[in-house]
Design a binder for these strands. Structure first.
Lengths: 153, 153
DNA sequence: CTCTTTCGTCAGGGGGACTGACGATTGATT
DNA sequence: AATCAATCGTCAGTCCCCCTGACGAAAGAG
């Protein structure tokens, strides 16, 4: 039924980013599930990525993740219910909630870093270490350019 | 409030893909809105990317996009209501719906390709044409590796 | 001490994906 | 030719994850 491999048209840069990104995400979150954390979903990385060692305020997490505090609260509540995170009243500010990782949450962070590194190593084995390194460098420059634009905005 | 630029830890490959991808998406869909198509959202690209010149069946679209037919129907219905797509009964199969682009939809596809090309050109201006070309090639190889794995699965 | 700002929450909504069940149609197998 | 399984699209319901608006409580500026 017209399921031929597509006219082999030049792929857009968007597709070239999306496909690896999705594949990587499947690897990482599949691996996380295999390690006993099936409840962690991609959206949760917004928390794990931005939480500070000594704990972070909800508002700070939201701002760093570029989302509303309501959305961040939704994610944090889920992680708290699952025991990855705990939130205590900030002793220095009666309004604030200080979100910190539990031991379980620390393990997730470690697993996320490991799985990411493993995936990158597999990529290097697949397309060549040199090419993978150049890919990383090019992406780093792109990201740097984006952040520069954002600051200049 | 602890909003320092982060410990400058080595970024994960996931972040290095996600940030450019999101930036690119903002550029492309912002540009589309500026050209008079504010109703087109990223999810709609699943339709525009996979629709065949002579029209495609809903089921075929869903399969190529890797989603359920219900989800694809949701997207197609939206595009049809906005006049980008039209769906007629397939003369060769009384069950099927043949989805085709309208003239308006064709313009969107053209705009999407243009905006993508513009963004890539801007990237080349930003990080260097050579580096951008190498980045594209590395991503193409990665995508090819992914598809090979998928077929071998 | 008042007034403004900030913190987190409550309430509601929408987009975009999913599963399960189903009627209509098709096409293959007797 | 009749039956029966597979396929097409839809209906109904759900979930996740993001949003906006409004608000009480607490902090901080004047």
């Amino acid at each position: 039924m017209d399921d031929r491999p597509a006219p082999e048209r030049r792929q857009t840069l968007g597709a070239l980013l999306r496909l690896p990104y999705e594949a990587l995400q499947r690897e990482v979150y599949g691996g996380l599930a295999a390690r006993g954390f099936p409840e962690i979903r991609p959206a949760h990385s917004a928390v794990f990525r931005h939480i500070a060692p000594g704990g972070s305020r909800l508002t700070a997490l939201a701002e760093r993740a570029g989302m509303t505090k309501q959305s961040m609260a939704y994610l944090v509540d889920g992680l708290e219910a699952a025991g990855h995170v705990r939130s205590l009243p900030d002793p220095r500010d009666g309004r604030a909630r200080l979100v910190t990782l539990t031991a379980k949450g620390e393990k997730v962070v470690a697993a996320l870093l490991e799985l990411g590194a493993e995936a990158e190593a597999r990529l290097a084995g697949r397309i060549g270490a040199k090419r993978a390194a150049r890919l990383r460098r090019a992406l780093e420059e792109w990201v740097a350019a984006i952040e520069q634009d954002r600051r200049a905005r």
